[in-house]
């Protein structure tokens, strides 16, 4: 388990650790209710997105869409860009990321360090400007390959083939799986696998609820649902606000020593909700949830210290998950 031929071979196989202090206490004689954290920050670039990036690039290679020296274009300000930059470097591709100019300095530095080129869209123009910039670049470079994580089946398949089997192997009695809802790849892939293997499994989504500025829509019809999303895979879906996400992120490091990003706090909030319901109903529960990434990239927000209200203000208008 400890020796690999290259960094790409070390993707996945992350530890699942129990949270004895954060798991709710149950009355004497009642069945146990336990929380388990899957530490996806232990992937090569420090996030769960390494799995999807690797699978999407491999699928594009196998389909003949990507050949040595090709350029990959991805509009992202987050972990997917960092993961793709690492995979692109090791597999011999160039990566161009399009992102708004107001993303955190850590992200820009990480992307450049891994060798990605960055095209900024003006922050002042909001999402409409970002869309215009992305469209223009795509039109100017029709030969660039866009992996499009929101609709790429290899994104979900990465979790069907790796995350799901790993979880079931480590926790055969799993009753709930809780993860974040963004591209929906983690929940669709892992959820489908676990539904096939575990009777009565609950697949629970935690969706970050941002400040209104982040949504930047002018009307409902500008909304967007990722092509990968199939509501039939989910049992429940929670919307988690900034304050609850920050509170849980802090609890996770204070009580269990796990230093995670804020999306993980949102997921933990939903995991605790279903765990407490199980206690109330007197049912056994083994709730596995995803730690998406470590907290390092978010330290500059200042949201790990100070009051919850300060942290909420600091994250207002940002993409914290």
């Amino acid at each position: 388990m400890a020796r690999y031929d290259s960094l790409l071979d070390a993707c996945g196989g992350t530890p699942l650790v129990g949270l004895p202090r954060l798991s709710p206490t149950v009355p004497d004689g009642a069945p146990p209710v336990r929380l388990w954290a899957k530490l996806e920050d232990r992937n090569p670039t420090g996030s769960i997105k390494d799995r999807a990036a690797l699978f999407m690039v491999r699928a594009a290679e196998e389909a003949g869409r990507l050949r040595a020296g090709d350029t990959i274009l991805e509009p992202t300000s987050g972990n997917t860009g960092i993961s793709l930059a690492m995979v692109a470097k090791l597999r011999g591709y160039r990566l161009v990321c399009v992102m708004p100019e107001n993303v955190s300095t850590e992200r820009v530095q990480l992307l450049r360090m891994y060798g990605a080129e960055i095209i900024f869209s003006p922050a002042a123009g909001g999402s409409n400007q970002a869309v215009a910039t992305a469209k223009q670049i795509a039109a100017e470079h029709p030969d660039w390959v866009m992996l499009y994580q929101y609709g790429n089946e290899a994104n979900a398949r990465a979790h069907y083939e790796t995350t799901g089997p790993e979880l079931l192997h480590d926790l055969p009695g799993v009753t709930h799986f809780v993860a974040g809802l963004g591209t929906t790849g983690t929940l669709m892939g892992t959820g489908r696998y676990l539904r096939e293997k575990v009777d009565g499994i609950q697949i629970v989504a935690a969706e970050p609820r941002y400040g209104e500025l982040v949504y930047g829509l002018r009307n409902i019809d500008e909304g967007y649902v990722p092509e990968l999303y199939d509501a039939g895979v989910l049992s429940r879906r929670f919307s988690v606000g900034t304050r609850d996400a920050v509170l849980r992120t802090r609890q996770l490091v204070e009580v269990e020593g796990i230093f995670a990003g804020f999306s993980t706090g949102a997921i933990l909030h939903a995991a605790l909700a279903v765990a407490h319901e199980a206690v109330r109903d007197g049912r056994r529960a083994d709730v596995a949830f995803v730690v998406c990434d470590g907290g390092w990239k978010y330290l500059s927000t200042g949201a790990y210290g100070g009051t919850l209200a300060d942290a909420e203000d600091a994250l207002d208008g940002q993409l914290w998950a």
Partner: peptide, 20 residues
């Protein structure tokens, strides 16, 4: 409104999906 994951990634990705 349905835009889980923030406006930028989704909006930009959707806009150039036809490019993909």
């Amino acid at each position: 409104p349905a835009v889980a994951g923030g406006a930028f990634g989704f909006a930009a990705a959707a806009a150039i999906a036809s490019h993909a």
